[in-house]
């Protein structure tokens, strides 16, 4: 279990990293925390010819907020994200989700950007990005652009990014008002990839009626699945068991999961239903209990 030969570069800044990426064509691969890449290289399932190590790009390690948008640099370690009070206050869904990623040891090393661009269909961060429709900021030597999460994830481990592009930061909208969120998953063990995961964020009006809701599921499709019908079904009403059931049924009807070793398609569908009701319910209760923002 040793990787095949590769060239290794450690750029000092973003322009150098992008230039290396450009010159390595299809053979370059960025390494940040390495928590997914290193194992697959060791097993020789991936044999990139050139590794560009961006651990030296400390400018990309930041958490900022302008009270409208939360901005996180791609090199921010997952553990830094998990323990950030700013993120907890302004986008608690991220905090709750990150705690489910692997183990403390892997979160110390793994980065927010690494997890997002790896685009594992069961991973927590891509799911949160989808649930909140975050914005991905991407750079290449020639241009800088941004993509919404809903357009970013294409299929298994595949995103909208070109080989010469690199994710630099992610932006998450900050919801104001009576907001509640919930992230739950069922995994075989603590720290495992979720069999199914669900994320929900919603906002209530003064009469406990849902004014906005975002709901997404992980582990049921090749990419995180946004349940766009949720808003139509739930907005304008208080949450009832019947409404919850309706959303769960819509979810059950819209997912087409694959069977694998740990979960059959039928079981995954069941989990999708159960977790949907749980996260919506919990987010709703949390929103009800939250103080109205000034």
């Amino acid at each position: 279990m040793k990787p095949a030969k590769f060239d290794y570069y450690r750029p000092k800044d973003l322009p150098e990293a992008l230039s290396l990426l450009e010159s390595s064509g299809f053979d370059g691969k960025i390494i940040a925390g390495g928590q997914s890449l290193v194992p697959i290289m060791n097993m020789r399932l991936a044999t990139p010819e050139c590794l560009i190590d961006i651990n030296g790009l400390q400018d990309l390690n930041f958490i900022e907020s302008d009270d409208r948008v939360l901005k996180i640099g791609t090199m921010t370690r997952q553990n830094t994200v998990e323990t950030s009070q700013l993120i907890k206050d302004q986008c608690g869904l991220v905090t709750e989700a990150v705690a489910h990623i692997g183990h403390l040891q892997t979160r110390n090393r793994g980065t927010i950007g690494g997890s997002i661009v790896h685009a594992d269909p069961s991973a927590e961060l891509p799911l949160v990005m989808m649930a909140l429709n975050g914005t991905l900021h991407i750079s290449s030597e020639d241009e800088t652009r941004s993509v919404k999460a809903e357009d970013f994830f294409l299929t298994f481990l595949t995103t909208d990014m070109m080989p010469n592009e690199m994710l630099t930061e992610v932006h998450l909208p900050i919801w104001k008002g009576r907001v509640g969120s919930s992230f739950q998953e069922v995994a075989r063990r603590h720290g495992d990839f979720a069999l199914v995961a669900a994320a929900c964020q919603l906002e209530l009006d003064a009469h406990d009626r849902i004014s906005d809701i975002r709901l997404a599921l992980g582990g049921v499709e090749a990419i995180p699945l946004l349940i766009s019908d949720a808003k139509e079904l739930l907005a304008g009403e208080r949450l009832t068991d019947a409404a919850l059931q309706k959303v769960a049924d819509v979810v059950a009807g819209s997912v087409e999961p694959e069977s694998d070793l740990h979960a059959s398609a039928a079981y995954r569908t069941q989990l999708a239903k159960v977790l949907t009701t749980r996260v919506v319910h919990q987010a709703y209760e949390r929103a009800k209990g939250s103080a109205v923002c000034p």
Binding site: M43, L45, P121, S122, F156, F193, D260, L261
Partner: peptide, 17 residues
């Protein structure tokens, strides 16, 4: 072989793809 041993989580989906 090796892919079957470690790829279970995504093989079905990727094959379909």
């Amino acid at each position: 072989g090796k892919v079957a041993m470690v790829g279970q989580r995504m093989l079905g989906g990727v094959a379909k793809l």
